[in-house]
């Protein structure tokens, strides 16, 4: 349970941590778009270098970032194997019996794997340096133009922040119940299908019961403090753009423009 690093906030003090969440969310989207603009390996090198600098500035440990790749490893392996068999473009590199490996398969796989890795690093950077609550404030502010269309941004933000707030608690609760059932001899890994189903039930049922109880208590507590769905609320924490935030947004937009220009230029040259 504690090995899940993707999406966990790391409480440190760094320039990246101090950035306004809105600036970080905008930057994340801009970088994601950059990744999908076809500029070849040069573009990836630029983004990669930028991300390395950001990770260092955010004081994130290399091991931590590497660990966030773990859940994707299986998928990457699978992709590599599939690509090796099905992509038949480029030069043949070697042949074993009836199987030939083409250079196209290698470059295509590298493209996808690097793209995935960059995306993971970008999301890890955002979630590791932004408190969940700040994140929801940021999302709420960025969505606020939708209020004109009667989109309930407040309620959505409240729902997201409640959900985020309960994730660690749920994980903790799940771990507690797993341990309690393990004390009664439940073995989540081994056993027949019937035993496994019962083992999973012994986790899910208590988890659901306690979730509903918690939701009930929370609703009561919120109402007792005067929360009304849809009513206008003021906010204690105000987000403020500072120089660094403005610079971040300008920078990623320049980068985005650069990527688009590069892509168009490359496209023309290739066409010629």
């Amino acid at each position: 349970m504690n090995n899940i690093t993707l999406g966990k906030y790391i409480p440190l003090d760094s320039p990246i941590h101090r950035l306004d969440p809105r600036a970080k969310i905008v930057a994340m989207f801009a970088l994601m778009i950059c990744i999908f603009i076809p500029t070849g390996f040069y573009g990836y090198a630029v983004i990669g270098a930028l991300l390395v600098i950001c990770c260092i500035a955010a004081k994130l440990k290399v091991s931590y970032v590497l660990r966030s790749f773990k859940p994707m490893l299986v998928m990457m392996l699978f992709l590599s194997v599939v690509n090796a068999f099905f992509i038949k473009t480029g030069e043949p590199i070697f042949t074993i019996k009836s199987f030939t490996l083409y250079s196209g398969a290698i470059t295509q796989t590298l493209y996808i794997v690097i793209r995935l890795m960059l995306m993971i690093v970008i999301t890890t950077l955002l979630t590791a340096t932004t408190k969940p609550l700040d994140m929801t404030l940021g999302i709420e502010d960025l969505l606020s133009p939708l209020q004109k269309l009667h989109f309930p941004t407040h309620d959505v933000a409240m729902m997201i922040s409640l959900a985020l707030r309960f994730i660690p608690q749920l994980l903790e609760e799940a771990e507690r119940i797993i341990k309690a059932q393990a004390s009664r001899g439940v073995d989540m890994e081994n056993g027949s299908l019937k035993e496994k189903i019962r083992a999973i039930l012994s986790l899910i049922v208590p988890l659901f019961v306690s979730c509903f109880q918690k939701a009930d208590d929370l609703a009561d507590a919120m109402e007792a403090r005067g929360y009304v769905v849809g009513a206008k609320r003021v906010r204690y924490k105000q987000l403020k753009f500072r120089f660094g935030d403005v610079m971040t947004i300008v920078l990623v937009n320049v980068l985005l423009a650069g990527f688009i220009t590069a892509a168009i230029w490359m496209g023309k040259n290739n066409a010629l």
Partner: peptide
């Protein structure tokens, strides 16, 4: 593990949450 868990019975805090 099983032998150990059987010989040492551990009742958790708020154990009532484990009933299913």
């Amino acid at each position: 593990t099983k032998q150990l868990r059987k010989e040492v019975g551990l009742v958790f805090q708020f154990a009532e949450y484990q009933l299913f």
